[in-house]
Design a binder for these strands. Sequence first.
DNA 1: CTACGATACCCCCAAAAGGGGGTTTTTATC
DNA 2: GATAAAAACCCCCTTTTGGGGGTATCGTAG
Lengths: 207, 207
Amino acid sequence: MDSMIKVVIVDDHKILTEGLKGLIDGSGSAIVVGVAHSAAECRLSLGFWKPDVLLLDVGLPDISGLDFCKEVKTQFPAINVLALTTHDEYSIVRQMLDNGASGYLIKNAMAEEVLAGIQAVAAGGTFLCHEVDLLLKRPREKHIWLTERERELLKLIAEGLTNGEIADRIFLSPETIKSYRKNLLLKLDAKNTAVLVRIAIEQKLIG
Amino acid sequence: MDSMIKVVIVDDHKILTEGLKGLIDGSGSAIVVGVAHSAAECRLSLGFWKPDVLLLDVGLPDISGLDFCKEVKTQFPAINVLALTTHDEYSIVRQMLDNGASGYLIKNAMAEEVLAGIQAVAAGGTFLCHEVDLLLKRPREKHIWLTERERELLKLIAEGLTNGEIADRIFLSPETIKSYRKNLLLKLDAKNTAVLVRIAIEQKLIG
DNA sequence: CTACGATACCCCCAAAAGGGGGTTTTTATC
DNA sequence: GATAAAAACCCCCTTTTGGGGGTATCGTAG
């Protein structure tokens, strides 16, 4: 049928893609025209597949799904990206949507939500699974959001650099690094570096 | 058919379980007699389902799959547990096998490996997917393995307690805590607390 | 029976982090 | 053109960590 929504799946969990393909093909409204298990594999065929919807995982083996989403939207603005991941952290959802995704599904969502999501984004709309919808509606204060510089500092701290080493690395005064550090402790409500690093990783604030 | 292997799936990713059920039922050698999306849900019916093989995820929403594996093996020693997860860390694999699992599959393994794994453990054997097999064969020095006490200390450090606070909590001298801390830095090859916490979380050494 | 790992303890001293206060400049938004 | 947020900088002082040494006890596997 010509009205079939063409879908491509990019996910390295082969067991999931197999099952998902069956689910979508069996729906009658959409058909899987391609499956890739890495961003590189997807790049090779995406121009040929020309899907309406790209079901994209965040945790790809080669590059981040976050970056790949941006890449796809730049090269093929007509393709609607629907994120499909295990991550339910604000930081990931926000970055994915900022990078051009039209929808966001968590892998423990119902099968029906996948089909609903595909139809919604194929029609040019947006779709968020229930859990993510609630997440984004929470008051602003509950969401941790850092500036570029803060994320950079946080990453270097988590790598074990001292204030002095960080200062040398990015050509700033050690006193400046100290200020950022104090501010990060405040923002993330951490009493010391140990907790700071734990929260940074748990909330996926660093790559 | 009487010779069919009876399988129960426990995983909160509904999309994966749907697909997996189709895959197993379609194999001709095994059949899914039950699906649960949490440990609690599984407990209710496990005695009734009486499966030969339990496909078990580590990241369940209610309790850890690690603990649930031990629980199942205690109550139903005849059920062969086959772990099916995204985790490829030594610590998780080792704990799962220590808790009685007969096999370990990573979710990005091939679909064929799932069927091979089910047949192997149903026959009373063991099964490790290729990746995990390689992981366990690496020289001992490459594997980080901590004592009970060290894991306890590591957890408290990651929670942000200082040496003094930890000492008060577990009734030891602050000097003792300091020694453990220095030893942990050595063992995990971390130059400071920030790196220590990062490695602890990445290698899944703490709960 | 001895050798080893795990547990628990101690001292000294230097380096780093944390808590409290600040200032200035740029850049974007209204 | 005001307002606000981000970025960069500075000083004082205390607490905590890290690096370097140690010692003693207990249990268990060779």
